[in-house]
């Protein structure tokens, strides 16, 4: 039998007077110094604890204590304090409810605000991909070939419903990029044409 199990049995036997030691336990303790010491240590602790339990503290002037309690019960202050306690209890419950309600409202508001902010940030920082940019550019060239960016913006704003304003902002960005790209392309074409004209003029001149 392991010492750990014997210790558990010793513990139960020492503190519970209804438990009798079994043969195996007695045999083990007889041959094991550590468990013998443990038994003695437990018995001493149990004796001190039992004596402490029996040594009851004494109330000096118990009748005085009873009279003090009864005097406090008779005092009208107790009634007032009882009402105050009830009022405070109700007030406390009300404050708890109010703080919970405020917490829900403000956390909801904050959630909506943060959500909007994140969407806005996402849309404004989003870079349109080539396909989107090309599509918008194509559209813009088809329908508004001679109009400027301002016109494109106002036209898109008119067409996009309010609920899609977030998407609209990204469309504006894409449109912005597309216009710049268009201007760049137009400049390149113009430069190429003028350089061709110059070259042909020079060639004619030389010729």
């Amino acid at each position: 039998m392991e010492c750990r199990l014997v210790e558990e049995k010793i513990e139960a036997f020492v503190y519970d007077k209804t438990i009798r030691p079994d043969e195996e336990m007695i045999e083990h303790i007889a041959g094991c110094t550590a468990c013998k010491t443990y038994l003695k240590s437990c018995q001493r602790a149990q004796k001190i604890i039992a004596n402490l339990s029996r040594a009851e503290p004494v109330i000096t002037f118990p009748q005085q204590l009873t009279n003090d309690i009864m005097a406090l019960i008779d005092e009208p202050v107790l009634k007032t304090s009882h009402h105050q306690t009830r009022f405070l209890a109700v007030a406390r419950k009300f404050l708890v409810a109010a703080s919970v309600a405020l917490f829900i409202v403000f956390s909801g508001e904050q959630y909506i605000f943060v959500d909007k902010l994140m969407k806005l940030e996402k849309n404004l920082t989003a870079t349109p991909n080539n396909k989107q940019g090309a599509g918008v550019y194509k559209k813009m060239i088809s329908y508004y070939p001679e109009k400027g960016l301002q016109m494109v913006k106002s036209e898109l704003a008119r067409q996009v419903p309010e609920s899609k304003q977030m998407d609209f902002k990204s469309l504006i960005m894409m449109a912005g990029y597309s216009v710049l790209a268009g201007e760049e392309l137009a400049n390149q074409v113009k430069n190429q044409t003028s350089s061709k004209q110059n070259l042909s003029g020079e060639m004619i001149k030389h010729h």
């Binding site: 503290p57 109330i59 118990p62 204590l65 009873t66 309690i69 009864m70």
Partner: peptide, 11 residues
């Protein structure tokens, strides 16, 4: 009641 139980409460 106080007379009877105060000892237990005090302990």
């Amino acid at each position: 009641l106080v007379d009877h139980y105060q000892k237990y409460a005090f302990n």
